[in-house]
């Protein structure tokens, strides 16, 4: 048990938070319980997110301005690497992921045959539960657009839950500050020939995460960010 705890401490879970407020505390407590090192990146929220994290043993970093989730994850990665992380996990702050899934995600990395693991809600159909129809259509297109841009066909285009080794994370340097970072990760996986796999994770669409989630038109913006990214590479 003691051994497991030490192991978990070198797993750095990055939780970018932009105005998640109360929900953030639940998400973080769930991760702290599993003894992971949690890094909350407050991406310039209106209310300092540290107010919601009182007495929780977490690392807290605050961006002075709102830069976007991609930028927050990169800041978290730099920080985690400086603290000697062995594994880095991306975890959304809106409560749609489950802390149990982190262990599943880490498992393929442990024998050093895989560099990065993507969470997917579609590998086991029963797990995905109810997914709103527009969301389904968007994810369907997102999947193929990512494929066209990156050459990698994943079953779940924009799942926020991923884990990678520290070595892989030094190669995945995100320059897309906003949501296009999810696709940028795929470009970098391809470019650096990282070994990847997908594992099944659960997603819960609470009313909260639905209201916070990406509005549909946002995907159009992601699409243009991608085109411009390719143009200005």
């Amino acid at each position: 048990m003691n051994n497991l705890q030490n192991d978990n401490q070198s797993v750095f879970v990055l939780v970018p938070s932009y105005n998640e407020n109360e929900v953030l505390r639940d998400v973080v407590s769930m991760l702290v319980e599993k003894k992971y090192s949690v890094v909350v990146i407050d991406d310039g929220s209106t209310i300092r997110q540290s107010l919601y994290l009182k007495n929780l043993p977490v690392h807290y970093i605050r961006h002075k301005l709102n830069l976007g989730q991609g930028a927050a994850l990169q800041t978290g990665t730099n920080f985690a690497l400086s603290k000697g992380a062995t594994y880095i996990v991306h975890f959304d702050a809106d409560g749609q992921h489950s802390a149990k899934d982190v262990a599943t995600l880490l498992h393929p990395l442990e024998d050093d045959t895989i560099d990065i693991v993507f969470g997917s809600r579609f590998l086991v159909p029963t797990l995905s539960g109810y997914i709103p129809i527009q969301k389904k259509i968007l994810l369907f297109f997102g999947r193929y657009i990512n494929y066209i841009f990156s050459g990698l066909l994943l079953s779940d285009a924009h799942n926020g839950l991923r884990a990678m080794t520290s070595k892989a994370s030094t190669k995945i340097i995100l320059t897309e500050n906003r949501m296009a970072h999810a696709s940028e990760i795929l470009f970098l996986v391809k470019k650096n020939r990282l070994r990847f796999t997908e594992v099944s994770v659960s997603i819960s669409y609470t009313d909260y995460s639905k209201s916070k989630g990406q509005p549909v038109w946002n995907s159009i913006r992601i699409f243009f960010d991608l085109i411009l990214h390719k143009l200005f590479e």
Partner: peptide, 8 residues
């Protein structure tokens, strides 16, 4: 912003 946030 990143450098400053991490230093802080």
């Amino acid at each position: 912003i990143r450098k400053e946030a991490i230093a802080e």
